[in-house]
Computed example of a mutant assay.
Amino acid sequence: MDIEGVGIIESIGEEVRSLKEGDAVMSHFIGECPNCISEKSNLCFKYPLSFTTGYGAALKLADIDHNSTVAVLGLGGVGLGVVEGARERGAAKIIGINIHDKKEEKGKIFGVTDFINAKNSEDKSISKMVKEATGGLGVNYFFECTDVPDLMINQERDLGQ
């Protein structure tokens, strides 16, 4: 079962005080599995929510610094979660990287400030495109959210040079 329990609030009722239109929200399934019961994790065994995986990685595990630069390769559920977590941590620049232009608009809703279409690379590696997008400085955090082994191997090699 693959559930994307995430969305953007389109409207709110008169009594709602803690949320506003445009806020990103995600569902949490509390009390149905050992992780939920432990109150130490939102990784749910029963409902694998890819968004919360990325969100938690950016917000809690990587502990992204305020005003940092973040690149996210892959803007599916996990990648968009990373983007939202990076935005909430105060990242100054969030570079979304994907092979589909339609992901740019959705990425910007969650906090992407710059978009790179990896198919428009003109034979440049992703790491070279990221360096160009940052004026040669590179990024403080890089998240690979595609699960494509060739991309991971190529980026590791390029970043190591």
Score class of each variant (00 low, 15 high):
Met1Pro: 13
Ala24Lys: 06
Glu15Ser: 07
Leu137Asn: 11
Val25Tyr: 07
Ser127Met: 14
Ile8Cys: 10
Glu144Cys: 00
Arg157His: 11
Ile12Pro: 12
Val83His: 05
Val70Ala: 09
Leu80Gly: 14
Asp150Glu: 05
Phe45Val: 15
Ile99Val: 10
Asp123Ala: 05
Tyr141Trp: 05
Glu84Cys: 07
Gly160Val: 02
His66Ala: 06
Asn117Met: 01
Leu80Glu: 15
Lys128Gln: 14
Leu43Cys: 09
Leu159Val: 09
Ala24Thr: 13
Thr69Gln: 09
Ser38Glu: 14
Ser127Pro: 13
Leu61Asn: 15
Asn140Ala: 06
Gly56Tyr: 04
Asp101Ile: 01
Gly13Gln: 00
Leu43Gly: 12
Glu4Asp: 15
Glu10Tyr: 01
Phe142Lys: 01
Ile9Asp: 08
Lys102Cys: 04
Pro34Met: 12
Val25His: 02
Cys44Thr: 10
Lys131Arg: 11
Val72Ile: 11
Ser11Val: 00
Glu15Trp: 02
Gly85Arg: 03
His28Val: 11
Cys33Gln: 13
Gly85Ala: 00
Gly5Cys: 06
Arg17His: 08
Cys44Arg: 06
Leu73Cys: 12
Thr69Leu: 03
Ser27Asp: 11
Met1Gly: 14
Phe142Val: 04
Glu10Leu: 07
Asp147Trp: 01
Ala62Val: 02
Ala91Pro: 10
Cys36Met: 12
Ile30Ala: 11
Gly90Lys: 00
Ser50Pro: 07
Thr53Arg: 05
Asp2Gln: 06
Leu75Phe: 13
Glu84Arg: 07
Cys44Glu: 13
Ser50Leu: 11
Ser127Glu: 14
